[in-house]
Design a binder for these strands. Structure first.
Length: 412
RNA sequence: GCGGGUGUAGCUCAGUUGGUUAGAGCAUCGGUUUGUGGUACCGAGGGUCGCGGGUUCGAGUCCCGUCACUCGCCCCA
């Protein structure tokens, strides 16, 4: 039926697309493993409360972007819009507080009811890491260095800037929020309509407004750095020194704030200008307040998430699929021998394609299309003599080898 | 959620001020080649012009609606 289409904002992944996704996820998983991060897979859906209590009542994610529904049993369920809340819930419900520090890596689908654009789907994929139970700045440094390491390995670090800021501890944050609100309240006429709205809900977000008038106003507003208390300042300085020691380049961005309420101290974003308005490729920060806010024991946390679709648009061509070997029977009489030979080769570890139909010419043509590196040709003569004709499909050279020696000749 | 752009073959795109049977390249399939792929040549198939309605003697072309994609805003990875 021609009117059957994927649901808005969803896509089928196959061929090169999924190879790109896997290349990203596999590289990230392997590198995170070197830092001691083990994989965690939490459920696709959680009790709605898990997200409403952690993301903040005012965030757009909670107010308009969640896929929330009621089950037959009357539970309120939400498809996860992000990964951190689920990991925190797992930490609490699994009683893992005795096992810190804990390091988790995840690669999962996320769901947000947003208007689709390039690099923004309703079902999308994130990789992410969470480091739980380390209150010191070395945790922030490690996690940022890990992100930078992964993007370097993927070959995209050259197009990406690391932006860094500190939101301070809750005391500093509250002090600054009051100062900023007081200042901006005196300039209501100049503020954009969006920012007037933000002044009520989340005044810090005005700092990264794109409206020109807002930007000018913000330039003269109180500076966040002036409101950090000594603890916060020392913490931020230690993060910067740690990154410098590891040769991770970064830019300070005083306008960088987080959309989600549970962040404190370090906030960072890895951005590119190659993706238009969806330039943030990896982002995260410290969220010491998250687990306590969900009713768990006071536990420090820091981590990030990266958008796989966005990274997939940046990485170079993924490694080509393995080039198979084609087993080609000359005529119908040799098909069964060919099938047996193909099976034997597969058991020996080779990737083998066996054309499903057609004469020798068609099968070779198909082998060529599959980028087979060699053809193993079996005709009446070969079967009689216990040999095969081995043809190199790049050079066109061919020779007869015994079936016993075939595996030796096929080794790369 | 708000504002703009675009929808013609599997893909990339032509299609004149509304006028016969809607075209090209690539891809696909077949043949030149009954034990040899890639290159070349020859040929074939493939379209309810996104969908629905309207105007008109006549709509791929004009109008309205709708869906999808896309750019920006919002938000975010």
């Amino acid at each position: 039926m021609s009117n059957l289409q994927p649901v808005r904002g969803t896509h089928d992944l196959m061929f090169d697309d999924i190879r790109r996704h896997r290349a990203i996820e596999d590289a990230a998983f392997e590198i995170a493993g070197r830092y001691g991060y083990g994989e965690i897979a939490t459920p696709v859906f959680e009790a709605t409360e898990v997200f409403t209590r952690t993301l903040g009542d005012t965030s757009d994610i909670v107010t308009k972007e969640m896929y929330t529904f009621e089950t037959k049993g009357g539970e309120r369920i939400t498809l996860r819009p992000e990964g951190t809340a689920g990991v925190a819930r797992a930490f609490i419900s699994g009683g893992l507080a005795q096992q810190t520090p804990l390091k988790f890596f995840y690669r999962e689908a996320m769901f947000r009811y947003e208007r689709p654009q390039k690099g923004r789907q309703r079902q999308f994929h994130q990789i992410g890491v969470e480091l739980l139970g380390v209150p010191g700045p070395q945790a922030d440094v490690e996690v940022i260095a890990l992100g930078h390491h992964i993007l370097t390995a993927l070959g995209v670090a050259g197009n990406i800037k690391v932006e860094l800021n500190s939101l301070g501890d809750s005391e500093s944050r509250a002090a600054y929020r009051d100062a900023l609100t007081a200042f901006l309240s005196g300039h209501m006429e100049t503020l954009s309509p969006d920012s007037r709205e933000r002044l009520q809900r989340n005044p810090l977000r005005i700092l990264d407004s794109k409206d020109p008038a807002d930007r000018q106003l913000v330039a003269n507003a109180p500076r966040y750095s002036d409101y950090l208390n000594t603890t916060s300042k020392d913490f931020f300085a230690a993060v910067q020194e740690g990154l410098a020691r590891l040769d991770v380049p970064f830019n300070l961005n005083p306008g960088l704030v987080r959309g989600l309420d549970y962040y404190s101290h370090t906030a960072f974003e890895f951005t590119t200008d190659a993706l238009g308005a969806q330039g943030t490729v990896l982002a995260g920060g410290r969220y010491d307040g998250l687990i306590p806010s969900m009713g768990g024991p006071a536990t420090a946390g820091t981590g990030w998430a990266a958008g796989v679709e966005r990274l997939a648009m940046l990485i170079p061509e993924p490694a080509a699929a393995v080039r198979p070997i084609a087993v080609v029977p000359v005529g119908a009489a040799e098909v069964q021998v060919a099938e047996k030979l193909a099976h034997t080769l597969r058991l020996q570890g080779f990737a083998v394609e066996l054309g499903y139909s057609g004469d020798m010419g068609k099968r070779l043509k198909r082998a060529n299309k599959l980028k087979a590196r060699a053809a193993v040709i079996l005709g009446a003569d070969e079967v009689r003599d216990g040999v095969v004709t081995l043809r190199d499909l790049d050079s066109g050279e061919q020779k007869k080898v015994t079936q016993a020696e075939l595996a030796q000749h096929l080794k790369v």
